[in-house]
């Protein structure tokens, strides 16, 4: 429970800092970026900048292009047949769709946590060590360090340190989701994408994850996708509202929820649709 106290302390710090950090150098930049599945256009000429070490929450109803945006950024969409794109999508100034980009390296730089917790069918330790191992880290000592560090950062170490070799399936849903996060942290990414990471969790586990994200945004660029405006408001930081493949508006949570600029944003956050 020490971890929890620490987390809530740093939460206070983080909250005071979030607003100040906006305006760092751009980490992720979409410039007129469109994305298609066959003939269906999922993203419509998107312009969006995410500064380094900041927290952006993308909210919007189902089918608004939120997930497509995430999966374009780490090119997980490559697996879908018949995709195409136009415009540019930059990570640290480099287009992720450039010919010379190595997809495996890109995906290590851009970690992703999915909606449902996905414990890979192996032990807790092996789950976290999976990424580093595939990158070629084989020293047992180095792996031990990475695993511990990642689990500590994901606020899971205290709960699992005595049973690292037991199956990851024995963890609770909230623990599994923090394990997913630790697994991402273990590959030392620059950007962390989270696709509705709390949709399957209870409120307490949800709050834990949200706190973690605020802490992590001091060291990483965090992009959280949610269909729940209340979560966007809770997490603070910058909020972007996606609707039918378009970015409707973007701004600090504090001002967007008080004074939305667009009628559609207002309708969404007041629960008229979505």
């Amino acid at each position: 429970m020490k971890g929890e106290k620490m987390a809530s302390m740093s939460r206070l710090q983080a909250e005071s800092q979030v607003e100040n950090r906006i305006g760092g150098p751009p980490k992720v930049e979409a410039q007129g970026f469109s994305f298609f599945y066959g003939k269906t256009q999922a993203l419509k000429s998107l312009d969006l900048t995410v500064p380094e070490n900041s927290l952006l929450t993308i909210m919007g109803p189902t089918g608004s292009g939120k997930t497509t945006f995430l999966k374009a950024l780490n090119r997980l969409n490559d697996r879908v047949p018949g995709i195409s794109h136009s415009g540019s999508l930059l990570l640290g100034g480099k287009d992720v769709y450039d010919r010379d980009v190595d997809v495996a390296t890109l995906r290590r730089r851009v970690g992703m946590v999915f909606a449902l917790p996905v414990p890979l069918p192996m032990s807790i330790y092996e789950n976290v060590a999976f990424g580093p191992r595939k990158r070629g880290v084989s020293s047992k000592k180095r792996l031990d360090e990475i695993v511990e560090e990642a689990l500590v950062s994901a606020a899971l170490w205290d709960e699992v340190k005595d049973r690292l070799d037991s199956s990851a399936h024995n963890l609770s849903g909230g623990q599994q989701q923090r394990l997913s996060l630790a697994r991402v942290l273990a590959v030392d990414p620059e950007v962390i994408l989270l696709d509705e990471p709390t949709s399957g969790l209870d409120p307490i586990s949800t709050l834990k994850i949200e706190e973690l994200l605020r802490v992590l945004s001091e060291r990483y660029t965090v992009i959280l996708v949610t269909h729940n405006p209340v979560q966007a408001a809770r997490v603070q930081g910058e909020v972007a509202f996606f609707y039918m493949g378009e970015l409707i508006e973007k701004g600090p949570a504090a001002s967007m929820f008080v004074r939305p600029k667009d009628k559609r944003t207002e309708d969404y956050i007041t629960g008229k649709f979505g």
């Binding site: 697996r79 992703m112 999915f114 999976f130």
Partner: peptide, 27 residues
């Protein structure tokens, strides 16, 4: 084998064969 397993492995930078050998086949 649930597709999320594969997506998870790919998202961690695993290559196709690594994903098949360490996640898909064991499952």
């Amino acid at each position: 084998v649930p597709d999320v397993y594969k997506e998870t492995a790919y998202a961690l930078g695993a290559s196709r064969w690594q994903t098949v050998a360490s996640v898909v086949l064991p499952t």
